[in-house]
Design a protein around this nucleic acid. Structure first.
Lengths: 190, 190
DNA sequence: GAGGACATGTAATGTGTTACATGATTAA
DNA sequence: TTAATCATGTAACACATTACATGTCCTC
């Protein structure tokens, strides 16, 4: 794991910049914050924190639990915050495109059009659900985190999700219509 | 490499369904066809073809080159085509969200707003370029592949790119305006 | 007493890129 | 003669998920 340039360790530093946390906390927080555009598994989080601690970028404190297992709480050190800032300034790495729906759709002529139709239908429903989630999160954030100077940035990321999902819903509807037309032509023979 | 469910080997089968090809050809073809939503490196392609051949899903034929190295041309077998169809019918695997731009933007309060501004500006230009590429490809396809029964599916994938990039351009412009406003407030002190 | 949340972590496995090695041909 | 394109392939490494192991507390 490259500590300087890799997104994963720096994502951990970023989350710890919001406050001290355990590996378990981080996993929970991800699903409530950056979950719609980023994810990490325990297999990345626990060894990642260990390495960050060894490099002096985070500090570890053990809270003895009575009965329940010990909590290992990590917090950002000054060097850790510096490293996070350095990484934030680096150009964004270009993303490797990987969209399995489009891959299947591209080869859609190999199977019945209603196979593709079902895939697109599933994608439509996914993005309709996401739109609702975004609205709910935005509403909650504007109430509960109204004073946080980070709020504008959080809303920007949500706003991208909204734009993207709206576009996807529109595309799905267009594409469903086209697929139904293809099906009709195939059956009708016209 | 799971041959049945993995997207990578099935992407290879899909490309070979367009006609017999070598590993090198596949790499070239990807950049001209599914490149905007899928990619494979040689390190995946060559060993992948080997495994598909061992499983009887593709057939290998060696063309002796005079001077230049031998070409290993692979073609889809009947079982290969069957496997491809089976995979196409399987539900689309949910994608792991990973957007480094949003990750950096989420933690944007840690650095000057113009750091985020530059990232978003780069993203804007990227999608503007992609929009032009999509238009060019769509135009070419409608001319050169007018008779191909696969054309409607190819245009659908391009159309998604168009919808997505248009949405991204719109979001980038909104976000740039907000970031400039944040910068002004910071400097002006209001 | 069954199941879920809390809590940490490792090992096995899967997935993917990059750098390297080789060497001929062709165009600037 | 320098670089690019054609062409194949491997090895090393980087990155990531999943299943497993462990054990308590609390609720139904």
């Amino acid at each position: 794991m490259r500590l300087e340039g890799g997104a994963t360790p720096n994502a951990l530093l970023g989350l710890l910049s919001l406050g001290p946390m355990s590996g378990y906390d981080i996993r929970q927080l991800i699903s409530q914050s950056i979950g719609h555009f980023w994810s990490e598994s325990y297999g990345q989080i626990y060894p990642g924190l260990k390495r960050l601690a060894a490099a002096g970028l985070v500090a570890k404190k053990t809270e003895r639990g009575k009965g329940s297992p010990d909590r290992h709480v990590y917090s950002l050190t000054a060097e850790g915050r510096e490293q996070l800032r350095r990484w934030l300034k680096l150009p964004v790495a270009k993303e490797v495109p990987r969209n399995e729906l489009l891959l299947k759709l591209f080869f859609g002529a190999q199977v019945s059009p209603n196979v593709s139709r079902e895939h697109v239908q599933g994608y439509l429903e996914l993005h309709q659900r996401e739109l609702k989630t975004y609205e709910a999160i935005a509403k909650r954030l504007r109430k509960e985190e109204a004073d946080d100077p980070q709020l504008p940035f959080w809303l920007m990321t949500l706003n991208m999700g909204r734009h993207r999902s709206r576009a996807m819903v529109k595309w799905c509807r267009e594409t469903l219509a086209e697929l139904e037309e293809l099906e009709r032509r195939k059956k009708g023979g016209t």
